[in-house]
Computed example of a mutant assay.
Amino acid sequence: MEIGRPPHETVFDAMHTADDVGARLAVDHLVSLGHQDIVHVDGGEQPGAAERRAGYLDAMRRHGLGGRARVVPGDCTERSGSEAARSLLAAGALPTAVVAGNDQCAIGLLVELRHAGVDVPGRVSIVGYDDSRLARLATSTSPPCDRMPSNWPGSPSGPPSNGWTANRALRQGSSASPPPPCRARRDRTGALTSEGGAIS
């Protein structure tokens, strides 16, 4: 038995999670909170990454946000999350939410953004994927292993059977409603300020 490997890459009975459904669930969750500027840090060539990316893009289109969809290259490591966070910070226009390729990437984002003084989830919400132990620090989509499809496993003498499971609800921790729009004005010195202080 193998778990998680794409169906065309195994000759054994295999169990798969519906990664596209999980990514759509993450976007649905963020949109329900009021987010529209949602970025996806993808998982590169890792198993399930292409399906999660497709699910994110599909959900953004379904919510009428296809024109705002942004995919930042990454992989399934904390380092890639940190690098993605630095890339977003350098661009000067942070999204209000990020769907990370997995929980390790989400933690990298979380640590780097907070190190830069960004309030998570007050300014940027982050949703990971996998519901790992790291997810206790974040919001994460949970791929279940507690329900097996009725047709799985297949016959020992027959072709390999590929079971699919749906995703459960989100464990919440690092996602919230987006911040209110910034109201900028000029102070007596001519510097731009907002309700939160000076704008750099």
Results as ranks from 00 to 15, higher is better:
L33V: 06
S82F: 00
T17C: 08
V72G: 01
G108Y: 04
D20S: 15
F12D: 14
V27Q: 01
P73H: 08
G158M: 08
L94Q: 04
V41H: 02
G128R: 11
M1P: 05
G122M: 02
V39T: 11
A23P: 10
A91E: 14
P121E: 06
S150W: 00
E51K: 09
D103G: 08
G154W: 00
T165Y: 00
A97C: 10
S80W: 05
P178H: 07
G108C: 10
S142F: 13
A50M: 13
D130M: 09
V127Q: 07
I38D: 01
R52D: 04
S194I: 04
D146W: 14
G48V: 06
A176D: 12
N102W: 11
L109V: 05
Q46I: 13
M15D: 05
S82P: 03
H29I: 02
D37G: 01
S157H: 13
A85M: 02
R62P: 03
D42R: 07
G22M: 10
S157Y: 09
A93W: 03
A26L: 05
E2Q: 15
S161G: 13
A116I: 02
D130N: 14
S161W: 02
A198S: 12
G196V: 14
R186Y: 11
G48F: 06
P159K: 12
V111C: 00
M148A: 13
L30P: 01
G108A: 08
T77L: 10
N102L: 08
D13H: 15
R147V: 12
P178Y: 03
T193E: 13
C145R: 15
S32E: 14
T189F: 12
P121M: 11
S174H: 01
G92K: 07
P178I: 00
P159M: 09
D75E: 13
Q104G: 04
V11F: 07
S87D: 12
S177H: 06
N151L: 04
D103Q: 11
R53K: 12
A18W: 10
G117H: 10
V31E: 04
Q46S: 15
G117Y: 11
L25S: 11
S157N: 10
A166T: 13
N167T: 15
H35P: 06
D75L: 12
S200R: 15
D75V: 10
G74A: 08
A169V: 10
T96C: 05
Q46C: 08
G74R: 03
D28W: 04
P178V: 02
R171Y: 05
V27M: 00
A93N: 11
V124W: 04
S175T: 09
R53C: 03
T165W: 04
D19N: 15
